[in-house]
Amino acid sequence: MLDRYDNNSVSLSATDLYCERDDRVLFESLSFAVGNGDLLQLAGPNGAGKTTLLRLLAGLNREYEGDVSWQGEALQDVFAEYAACRLYLGHLAGIKRALTPIENLRWLVSPWQAEAGIDDEQLWQALEQVELGGYEETPCNQLSAGQQRRVGLARLDVIPAPLWILDEPFTALDVYGVEWLEQRILQHINRNGAVIITSHHALQNIPSLQRLDLGALMANRRGGAA
């Protein structure tokens, strides 16, 4: 239903990133780039700074040194364009429990709605896709945790953003949900999109997978320095 993304529509690069939290260095001289068709998985033990780095890349965290650029320009300078091209799914999805899945989804896609011409029909279909068919009008507080997660994930089917930034998207999903999401990510990569993800889940079926292990990275640095 959606076309392939153009080449060079994704060009996110990080140069010489340095970030510390409470006097502890999370990562330093970290450089990498993400382009079309890339899948980057941030790995590492708890507290290694995966979420910090992910939010930094999403443009939410500005407490760092180094450069992050989008299409060759500093992220903060082109933030509006960047925001339109990347879909950020945080640890918390922004779901209001008193509202129904369809009402929540309408709000979640609102920044893209006018430009991408998203209509309600697409939203109903997306909910169907994440197996919330029949629950569209049930308030979210009557849904399970996994079902509430799916409301947030339903966005992936609707929003035409080439770059996805997903924080632990597999949390609370059942086997079918995990399978669906893996398929969805694979499909996105095949359509020339790009995905940056933090997950303890092993993403094996995707050939272009790159892993960035923050724990190992810092351990090497420390080992090298000693």
């Binding site: 999403a58 443009g59 939410l60 925001a83 950020y88 945080g90 640890h91 918390l92 999805a93 922004g94 779901i95 209001k96 429990r97 979640l108 920044p111």
Partner: peptide, 10 residues
């Protein structure tokens, strides 16, 4: 509930 995060991300 993460609404704020979505605002800032938008």
């Amino acid at each position: 509930d993460g609404t704020l995060e979505q605002w800032l991300a938008s």
